[in-house]
Write a protein that binds this DNA or RNA. Structure first.
Lengths: 196, 196
DNA sequence: GTCTATATTACGATAGAC
DNA sequence: GTCTATCGTAATATAGAC
């Protein structure tokens, strides 16, 4: 902001290019050569900004995880009836997923071959456990159907939510943001079927 | 069957080893060295059975796709009310996913870097279109709620179904097979919430 | 901050013996 | 059917000039 921006790379701007390529080709399927072509600079210039491929992955999944965990600290996720907290967190997770789409996409595809990947998987498990606890509370209130296992229901709910990354592409004006989150919550909690 | 089985590899038995490693490390993250270690034979012995890594991928995703498409040819998927056909196909897709878990897992993770991967993605899209057509018929019958877009609902439904591969591990006796399929269908069509 | 050139390692695949 | 040895290529990463 102090001086006029140059059109040269910083770790941040390079990250957005890298994440796009990672999602197109897969992290393992992306070489530094691929990244350098996509960024329009040489391989060694990339090493000037980051220590290597894995640092780009770490920065990317960190951004995704920070966005997801931030939802759990928002006020509506911590007050009121449990079922309402669950619905809020579900809706906000969908929104974070849309807002940080490439970063969350990459996070959800991490396998576990490197230390960074295993760390990301561990933090994801922490997040999932926080959600499962919320769901248990809602079940204890009698607000979730009692004929399904809560852990299973949690997995299916967030399996549905996370599947958004497979097809969702943002509209220029973000017009679909609220509507899509509403639909996911409605379908998950009230079902596909016409009310009898 | 004619002679006593030797404990040597055929393309089939090698495939089961390869698919397991592909799912653990990702297809791109798996080298022929990894496969040879896991199979207990040398790299060049693998080339005796298959032409290369990509043939193993092709055989694996073919098996998954054949299982999924076979569901669409079963009698209950082609008779009766559309909503019942959709529920049947959903339930059977869950069962195929469980029965052919490693193969379907690999299919659902394919990216598109090679010709084989792009072919697999194309056949997956064909399958998804067949499902979407079934859903449209059920909506036309008035059996699906009219306040959500059918294409979106189809994506979310099968996003939920496909997410099984992220955590499901079969029990030795297959005791959970029918129960899990029932739960998925119940949640998807009737929702998580306690009936008011 | 970016480049060319290169070191070093790992990869997919093949040759040829047993 | 399996092996050891190896080829040619492509990978990550570094050195050093501009």
């Amino acid at each position: 902001m102090t001086t006029a921006r140059r059109d040269t790379y910083t770790p941040e701007t390079l990250l957005s290019v890298a994440v796009r390529v990672f999602n197109e080709r897969g992290y393992d399927g992306t070489s530094m050569e691929h990244l350098s072509k996509a960024a329009g600079i040489s391989k060694s210039s990339i090493y000037h900004h980051v220590t290597g491929k894995e640092e780009l992955l770490r920065r990317a999944v960190s951004r995704a995880l920070d966005g997801l965990f931030a939802v759990l600290d928002e006020a509506p996720a911590n007050q009121g009836r449990a079922i309402e907290r669950v619905e809020y967190v579900t809706r906000r997770t969908v929104e974070v997923l849309m807002d940080e789409l490439p970063y969350v996409t990459l996070l959800l595809r991490v396998r576990g071959n490197t230390r960074t990947e295993r760390w990301a998987l561990e933090r994801r498990r922490d997040f999932d456990h926080r959600i499962a606890d919320l769901m248990k509370a809602a079940a204890a209130d009698g607000d979730l159907r009692s004929d399904v296992d809560i852990k299973l229901a949690t997995r299916l709910l967030f399996g549905m939510v996370n599947s958004l990354v497979e097809w969702y592409r943002p509209l220029p004006d973000g017009a679909d943001r609220r509507q899509l989150a509403d639909t996911v919550v409605r379908l998950a909690f009230d079902g596909l079927r016409t009310a009898p």
